[in-house]
Amino acid sequence: MSIVFSPASIGTMKLKNRFVRSATWENLATDTGHMTEKLYAVYEQLAQGDVGLIVTGYANIVAEEKPNAGMMGMYDDSFIPEYKKLTDLVQRHGAKIVMQLAYGGTKTTYNLGERVIFAPSAVAERSTQTLGKEMTTAEIDYIVNAFAQASLRAKLAGFDGVEIHAAHTYLINQFLSPYYNQRKDQYGGSLDNRLRFLVEIYQAIRKQVGAEHPILVKLTASEFFTGGLTFNETRQICKKLKALGVDAIIISGNNHGNANTLIGQSFDGHTIQQEGYFREYGAVISNDIDIPVITVGGLSDIHAIEDLAATTNIKFFALSRPLLAEPQLIKRWAQGNNNQVDCERCSKCRTKRGNFCVVFKPRKPSSGLRTRIGQR
């Protein structure tokens, strides 16, 4: 059997294969971020489809910060029992589940004017033009602690680990970026200073969850524009995070929904690929560090994934949109059916009624559950 269907580990978390459902904003939680029956059905169907690891849609860590409608929450203890139901549901099918935690910041146009949005500096986000409030050190401490407490709740709810979202121009990514971070204090300037916020978040989480509980970090390979975070800096960040004890790193991009428009273009000496947008960046980092590297974005061909597994040190392969159309895709591949995936990469999956494939009806597992999901 292909290596991609063989067991592997992330820290103490043992996975049945190398496939990851990447963090996905489903837009199906309640207004306050609580679970719904549709959302439970999404995750059960994914687990039935033999995905090795499921990363949840991003969850907000403080009640007052919500970058998108219908997103999950983990900002107080009321979430623990309903997420325990979720983790039990997933794990009974042999899958593992990690909660992605995030502070969105200015990468949003949702409910502007109704809330204070933190940012490292008074620099508008390039795609949304949203301007945030430059954080005080007390506010930084507040968010660091919120990440830690949310991670502890996730552990108590039975999650197999947590993922820190430090990519996609969300708050942590902005602290890392020399474009967005114009601070003159200990959190700005040098790369070590810009990294300090993420390091403090990681250390606070580790203190709460213990040495053995897996912590993953999602990073942007490069910001792909002049003055932004470079790939060389990301490589240095990965080495520092490995030294601190991070269990795995997900290498993504900063082109939400637009990476396909950059296919064939080169940035920082590497090229955006048709199959696996950021694979070249992930391959380099997988040689830099000896913890698992996960590549995400534009993966949909099993043969290309198998080639990546055979020719690079990348250990895990994350998909989102292909699983919108086919939640049973991994099981189909494992059974030897390597026909072209249903997903057309049309990016029509974000709707006002939730995020789901509008082109194909998901193939039903034996339980008859349906799914609605969309990439995050």
Rank of each mutant, 00 (worst) to 15 (best):
A119T: 02
Y58S: 11
L39F: 10
Q236L: 08
I251W: 04
T130C: 05
N339R: 13
T130A: 08
K14F: 06
A119C: 13
V51W: 05
F278I: 08
K207Q: 14
G264Q: 15
A259C: 12
Q208P: 07
F278A: 10
G70M: 08
T226N: 01
A29M: 00
S266L: 15
Y170E: 00
A8T: 13
K96N: 05
A122K: 14
T56S: 15
A167Q: 07
F231H: 05
Q340L: 13
M74Y: 04
A148C: 08
H168C: 05
R194C: 12
K85I: 11
A63K: 14
S222V: 06
L229N: 03
Q335F: 10
M1A: 14
F225N: 09
E65G: 05
D342F: 12
P362E: 01
Y142D: 11
T30L: 02
H303G: 09
Q129D: 11
N193C: 11
I215W: 03
N255F: 05
I249N: 02
G161K: 02
D76E: 04
R363C: 06
S222W: 00
E26N: 09
K133D: 01
Q208C: 06
C238T: 11
L241F: 04
D288Q: 07
G228K: 00
T371H: 02
Q149G: 04
E65P: 00
R21K: 14
L319F: 04
E344V: 09
N287S: 13
K16R: 15
H270L: 07
T312R: 14
K14L: 11
G11S: 12
A8G: 11
K240G: 01
V123T: 13
M35L: 15
I294T: 08
I215A: 00
T234P: 02
G113S: 07
G298P: 03
K96R: 15
V4H: 00
T271Q: 08
V116W: 08
G73E: 01
T87Y: 01
V42G: 00
L86D: 03
L86Q: 02
S9V: 09
V341T: 13
S127H: 07
D192Y: 06
A304N: 12
T87S: 09
A221M: 08
Q186R: 08
N258L: 13
S222F: 04
V217D: 05
S347M: 14
K361A: 09
A248C: 12
C238Y: 01
A283M: 05
S222Y: 03
G227H: 14
V358M: 07
E82P: 09
A41C: 13
A138L: 14
